[in-house]
Write a protein that binds this DNA or RNA. Structure first.
Length: 564
RNA sequence: GCACCCGUAGCUCAGCGGAUUAGAGCAUCUGUCUUCGGAACAGAGGGUCGGCGGUUCGAAUCCGUCCGGGUGUACCA
């Protein structure tokens, strides 16, 4: 596509001495393979009517000999056709082992933070998106020439700890905890949150005070508190790692809030001494951000002296700055924290941090109520756990392949493919309505549909041993749609990485899969009376398609099974 | 109140660096089928792109405004 737009660009320059960038689009096939509305865009600056401009450009483009057909339509669209043979040559020229990747990142360093679950409760679908999309963004950064460091910023500090200890002492015991593990911790957490709520409505704050006391104890190095913290975190971390393993995501680092809390306290002292932060009479510490248009002061330390999220996050920014000098940091965190992050980023600016800080937020996962309204999924109403989701997906995948020779490994790939792909169906910011049928979709716009197309391609390649062939005499006409689609891939990766929108890769892969399924339906590859040249030429295209499938799916954290 | 997000087919969602006839999946209906693997393919019906106004030769897309829904708005994370 670059090459084609460059040809037009040159023609535009020669005729009108304009450097207006040419945008190509894919029109309805009846009009052409590519089209551009450059003539309309030039009309104003050139001072001629668009139709006239289009006509003279079209003449010039015909002279170039690169197009099999050039026509002008409507108010001044230039529609172009390129022969399949030319497109095939173009693909061959731009092909490499790293087809699709680029160097846009220029070796700069980016830290991607995900999935950062809290230790307080079992891993729920609430953290599906940060983990899944965070991983995809990491992969996109890698594919576009960034040096990537990933960090699991675990929520292993702060209020949840206090809530746990209070709840554990009040509603649980050693035996229950030993038997229930992380699920018992989850129960304790929910139960205690409820008790705190009831207490608050009754105008009391006994439990709330106890929660804060335990936090203070922990910060002051009380051995009992530290022992509780160690015990609870150990249980939770093992669980988090198990789920991340099943989701096939990992991070380079795992520096949680607990790690940064002491550093945070120190950082706050520095801010105070520099006069950036202000201590209120009640002991709490704030930073004013009026000059950034934010009139709510940023609370960075509670009145009882304990740390909160902002405290540890400031320390995290400073720590990363000193360790890695990142050019960019991406936080894969839910949308509820948008305001918090605008505050945090404003403070970073105030501290002179130059790093590009990005809050990669996602639409919420909602559930549908009986009255048809939608509502955010919450622990209060009963969340779906990640473990449950993975189990169910595997069970369903297993039922489908019953009686076929499919490995357990492959079943898991399909199950995971279904879950992950469904998360990429919509734009990152769109709220997702949780439904078991959507998330396990096996046909239509779904992970398994794409995986299936890839598996078919690979099977044909395995059975037919593609080898280099002289394809000069072959016109590639039946493969034209697929070749054009394959030519689009690098641009898709580029834009997807630029916008941090993995779902664009997903849409693309679906379209490629669809084109391929249609292609098999009407074009024999290695059956019937297909000549050797045809066969090898077709296998050559399939080989490239196979690469793009594997590459694109891997950007989404999805693997291609052997059989399914 | 203010800030941000959302409103496109019965449902779930694309498209929104303007442009030739607004797309996909699911659901419904009809075909293809002794398959290089049917988790497939071909086709049908279904839309005042929330309302109004503006910019433009041209608006689902940009701007304004109103309506409806969601989220956030310092001692939670």
């Amino acid at each position: 596509m670059d090459k084609i737009s460059k040809i037009i660009q040159d023609a535009v320059f020669k005729l009108f001495e304009s450097e207006q960038t040419v945008q190509l689009s894919s029109p309805d096939p009846q009009f052409g393979d590519y089209s551009t509305n450059i003539a309309m865009q030039l009309a104003k600056t050139v001072g001629k009517n668009p139709r006239e401009i289009a006509d003279s450009l079209a003449d010039k483009l015909r002279e170039s000999g690169e197009f099999s057909e050039v026509s002008v339509a409507g108010p001044g669209f230039i529609n172009l056709r390129v022969s399949a043979k030319n497109l095939s040559d173009l693909l061959e020229q731009s092909w490499s082992e790293k087809y699709g990747e680029n160097k846009d990142g220029d070796g700069k360093t980016v830290i991607v933070e995900y999935p950062s679950p809290n230790v307080a409760k079992p891993y729920s679908v609430g953290h599906l998106r940060p983990g899944n999309q965070g991983w995809a963004v990491k992969r996109l950064m890698e594919a576009t020439g960034w040096k990537v460091i990933t960090d699991n910023h675990i929520g292993d500090y702060g209020a949840p700890f206090g809530i746990w200890v209070v709840g554990f002492l009040e509603f649980s015991d050693d035996e229950k905890l030993d038997n229930g593990g992380v699920y018992e911790l989850g129960r304790i957490y929910i139960r205690t949150k409820q008790a705190l709520k009831d207490e608050a409505t009754a105008g009391e704050r006994q439990l709330a005070d106890q929660v804060q006391e335990w936090l203070l104890k922990l910060e002051n190095g009380d051995t009992e508190a530290q022992e509780y913290s160690r015990r609870f975190n150990e249980i939770s971390l093992a669980h988090i790692h198990e789920i991340m393993n099943r989701m096939r995501i990992s991070t380079d680092l795992e520096l949680g809030e607990a790690f940064f809390a002491p550093k945070g306290k120190q950082a706050i002292q520095d801010l105070l001494s520099k006069g950036i932060a202000i201590q209120n009479p009640d002991g709490s510490v704030i930073v004013k951000l009026d000059e950034y248009g934010i009139d709510v002061p940023f609370l960075v330390q509670k009145s009882n002296g304990t740390a909160l999220y902002s405290t540890t996050d400031i320390a995290t920014i400073l720590y990363r700055e000193s360790m890695w000098h990142p050019d960019r940091v991406i936080y894969a965190v839910g949308p509820e924290q948008q305001f918090y992050f605008t505050q945090l980023f404003a403070l970073a600016k105030k501290l002179g941090i130059k790093t590009e800080l990005i809050h990669l937020w996602f639409g919420m996962i909602e559930q549908i109520n009986e009255d048809g309204t939608r509502e955010k999924m919450s622990s209060r109403k009963g969340v779906v756990l990640m473990e449950e989701l993975l189990d169910q997906a595997e069970t369903r995948a297993r039922e489908i392949v019953k009686g076929r020779d499919v490995s357990d490994e492959d079943i898991k790939k399909v199950a995971l493919g279904a879950i992950k792909f469904s998360d990429f169906m919509a734009d990152r910011r769109t709220n997702i309505l949780f439904s078991w049928d959507n998330i396990f979709a096996l046909s239509g716009f779904s992970g398994p549909y794409v995986q299936y197309a890839a598996v078919r391609v690979n099977k044909i390649l395995r059975d037919n041993n593609p080898k280099y062939a002289e394809t000069e005499s072959y016109d590639f006409e039946p493969e034209k749609t697929i070749i054009m689609k394959l030519l689009d891939y690098p641009e898709v990766v580029k834009v997807s990485a630029r916008d941090l929108e993995p779902h664009k890769v997903a849409s693309y892969l679906y379209e490629l899969a669809k084109d391929l399924n249609r292609y098999y339906e009407q074009t024999p590859i290695a059956t019937g009376d297909v000549s050797d040249i045809e066969k090898q030429a077709r296998l050559g295209i399939l080989k490239k398609a196979s690469h793009v499938f594997a590459h694109g799916l891997s950007l989404l954290g999805i693997e291609v099974p052997i059989r399914m």
